[in-house]
Design a protein around this nucleic acid. Structure first.
Lengths: 219, 219
DNA sequence: GCAAAAGTGTTCTGGATACACCCATGA
DNA sequence: TCATGGGTGTATCCAGAACACTTTTGC
């Protein structure tokens, strides 16, 4: 009865959501596509996984080729596979979340890319942005952002968005922007102290008490 | 310079980790494969995603075809894509976790399957089991189990492993087996009360006070 | 000295932990 | 009436919330 199953053949892609915090808002890195489909549209960095590389390796390669970025923290997020998510072919996409510090990450347009840009995302305009984006990349951003918020509470991922040395007020600001709510200074410090160590340096030059510099202790 | 990218073509599969709790241990559902590769080996239910179905739909279909199971709770877990994870072809597998109540789920061997069986997994013998399993399915089980434990604490997934009506001692037992540690009765009840409602029924016939039956309130 | 922001100590409270006790049943 | 396990009340502890306060700088 059961006829032979014809192997399903399709393309597998990776898409990377690179988040950073700048001034007072969250930003995601987008590229303007230089090729079809969605030529000239904004899209997430990423591309097809080759047959001789793992998805993790594909992420590394795409970031290097397309935007000249290496050695950043990435983590697999969710795999999107609706049959009509790509207008031309059947493509299943494994999405990755990446967190960077803006001053330590300098993307430049590379292969298949017209330009790269940081795009501010606030709760208000995320729907607007979604319309501009290729594929289901808008949905991916929303989903990634909510997962990022959740993980902030019980992991140390936020440190990937900091410079090597940072002050506690700076760190608190990053949390406040991501969570979109103010935090109590004293409480934040008590909680975060387990995960940082003093570098011995301070930031001076401001009309107030110098702030101590810390680094992530890796926990 | 950049030569045309040849689309990477490969197969995409789904694999489902169906967990249940029975007596004093966690069990996972395995099937003995009736076809190559890994013929006669134990493996997770699953199969290739067809070009005209989403991964979620593929999960539904595979469970129906292979083990005759429908309408169970599933959730995407992680996508595995090492280049050598399948000995013959390049296959990327999206793993799903599923939770069932054993007395409400009656798998029977179907297409491509020799037999189906519940396999006990304890911390001790999981390494033994891993050796028997096809592909990287042993690793998938370990990973899924640790994620399941984590999610128990902050989600309501455990209710998917209960019968429609259950007593609080029964529910507590499930938590204790999954978390592999005893819980305080009074505290467990206070916490879980927000998520259940009385059905009005009780369980009698035991030489002690009857226990009230509850159902999940959906929260 | 003063404004400003860094940094710290203290109270309060809600939830988790731990333990003690009461209750309803079958035999 | 007794053993058994279901079910409940309460003291304790701890982390987080909230607030008040001190410290150090530039001007």
């Amino acid at each position: 009865m059961a006829k032979a199953v014809k192997p399903a053949v399709m393309s597998v892609a990776v898409d990377v959501l690179i988040f950073t915090v700048s001034d007072n808002h969250v930003e995601v890195l987008l590229e303007r596509r230089a090729e079809e489909p969605f030529k000239n549209c904004l899209a997430l960095p990423g591309g097809l996984v080759k047959t001789d590389e793992s998805p993790d390796d594909a992420v590394k390669r795409c970031l290097r080729e397309e935007i000249g970025v290496e050695d950043i923290y990435t983590e697999q997020l969710y795999t999107w596979g609706d049959i009509d998510r790509d207008p031309r072919n059947r493509v299943i996409s494994i999405s990755y979340i990446a967190l960077v510090n803006k001053s330590r990450c300098h993307p430049i347009a590379g292969e298949r890319v017209e330009e790269v840009c940081w795009k501010e995302i606030s709760a208000d305009d995320i729907n607007e942005l979604t319309k501009e984006l290729a594929y289901d990349h808008g949905e991916m951003i929303s989903y990634a952002l909510s997962r990022l918020k959740g993980k902030l509470e019980y992991t140390s991922i936020a440190f990937h968005m900091m410079e090597e040395e940072f002050t506690l007020p700076e760190l608190q600001k990053v949390y406040e922007i991501l969570l979109d709510k103010p935090l109590y200074k004293a409480n934040f410090r008590k909680k975060i102290m387990d995960f940082v160590e003093e570098t011995g340096n301070t930031v001076t030059g401001n009309p107030h008490r110098p702030s101590k510099l810390y680094r992530w202790n890796g926990r």
